[in-house]
Design a protein around this nucleic acid. Structure first.
Ligand SMILES: NC(=O)c1ccc[n+]([C@@H]2O[C@H](COP(=O)([O-])OP(=O)(O)OC[C@H]3O[C@@H](n4cnc5c(N)ncnc54)[C@H](O)[C@@H]3O)[C@@H](O)[C@H]2O)c1
Ligand SMILES: NC(=O)c1ccc[n+]([C@@H]2O[C@H](COP(=O)([O-])OP(=O)(O)OC[C@H]3O[C@@H](n4cnc5c(N)ncnc54)[C@H](O)[C@@H]3O)[C@@H](O)[C@H]2O)c1
Lengths: 200, 200
DNA sequence: TACCTTTTGTGAAGGTTTTCACAAACTCGT
DNA sequence: ACGAGTTTGTGAAAACCTTCACAAAAGGTA
């Protein structure tokens, strides 16, 4: 919206864009403070800035990529991560044939250097793209080195201690959700909402 | 569990495995019927079979992959999709340099053949891995050809008519969720639950 | 300034989901 | 066949989330 030149936006328009209701937008925002001006709406630029702060996105996050395989390579070349404030600053693998190579200037290092690298680069978040059978072991090492957040691409359920955030992305599971939805036994909760607000 | 040789499982153990409570497991299952035996629990094999039916996974799903790029290639080589019942049976792209090649025996075809291919192979679900700017156009064509479910990897909000299910996976968004969680402003809803049931 | 219009922020109402807790139904060993 | 021990299935209670609806606060106009 900023790029479109809008300086101000109402909860109704915001709701339309993200697929929810105006009341929901206002209630959600109200949980973090008061951002709008009555009769006018929200100032686009300042709302964006406040939200970036709330989400912890005011800073750049350095990321460690674990697993220099097919999906790891695709992720590394995915420009959207950097545009959204996440930069893969180190790549760790176990395969001696990969260690020592560089991708676009970023060296692939041995997983054994994990502690040193994470400390030196002050990395808090890791992207895990190793085979499922390796995932728990890798995650244990990461957590031992002080990693606080993990985005796990491997189809494995991870155990981590309290205070560590894990987010799992399982594409096969997402297809299963679609499979269930097509069975037409009602609507799937969590499906993208396409309806639109109906405030006055 | 079947592979581990278990023949029977209680709601408590199921809950531990998936990270929820025993009561939740029982209530959820009860919405679809009655599966267990009092005093004993659930028979692993038959529960698995019933769940596969409920989720629509008794059949194999043929899938169309749209976009033979970096992520498309990684997905195509991802063996877990097939293991979970989804098989990429056609690949469609726009780039003349890619059209005509084959990946592991599957030809890359022109996106213009979408209608013919989808009908012939009876495809209902597509994986969309084209640039964000192309996503809506591609999806419109897919929907026009009778596709009913879409798993969208492009960071674009899609509009589809009623009756079409869209599931979006946005890795940058998942990292943003972690970023917020690390801000320690309370716990993130939807975070992986690690606690354990405490039924009697 | 007074008045009309717009839109927020938020209690209260309404709806949904999760948890509790227990009778009923089963197993198993004797 | 029985009794002790499990574990389910499920109403009812509690917790949580969304929607409603409106006073309050702002901008614009004359
Ligand atoms: N390919 C996909 O599209 C895709 C999609 C979703 C999820 N996944 C999952 O992502 C993971 C990786 O998939 P992939 O296709 O890239 O596999 P891959 O075999 O191409 O790559 C795995 C990489 O991990 C490295 N590795 C293995 N053990 C390691 C360890 N202990 N420490 C450090 N590095 C180690 C390997 O050397 C290899 O480079 C798998 O769990 C897969 O299920 C893949
Ligand atoms: N690379 C990643 O790790 C990654 C991760 C998540 C999401 N994504 C998203 O997935 C999409 C693809 O990413 P990529 O890295 O594979 O890009 P890419 O440029 O490597 O591949 C895109 C492919 O789509 C094809 N294409 C373009 N327009 C098309 C059209 N109208 N019809 C059919 N095919 C068309 C191109 O010819 C190309 O082969 C992007 O939207 C990207 O944001 C990528």
């Amino acid at each position: 919206m900023e790029e479109e030149g809008a300086t101000t936006v109402s909860s109704r328009v915001l709701a339309q864009r993200v697929g929810t209701t105006a009341a929901q937008v206002r209630k959600d925002l109200s949980l973090f403070g008061t951002f709008g001006t009555r009769g006018l709406g929200y100032e686009v630029r300042s709302l964006r800035e406040r939200l970036r702060e709330i989400l912890g996105l005011a800073q750049e996050w350095p990321i460690a990529l674990i697993g220099a395989g097919r999906i790891g390579s695709a992720l590394f070349e995915y420009p959207n991560l950097r545009r959204r404030g996440f930069e893969i600053v180190t790549i760790l693998d176990r395969d001696p044939r990969k260690i020592g190579r560089s991708w676009d200037g970023v060296r692939i290092r041995s997983i054994d250097e994990v502690g040193e690298v994470i400390e030196r680069l002050r990395i808090k978040v890791a992207l895990v793209a190793v085979p499922a059978s390796e995932a728990q072991g890798v995650v244990d090492r990461l957590v031992g080195c002080g990693i606080r957040g993990i985005l796990n691409l491997a189809p494995a359920r991870l155990r981590v201690p309290d205070g560590v955030t894990v987010n799992e992305v399982d594409l096969a599971l997402e297809l299963e959700v679609i499979s269930y939805a097509l069975g037409a036994r009602g609507t799937v909760p969590g499906e993208i909402r396409q309806d639109v607000t109906s405030d006055p």
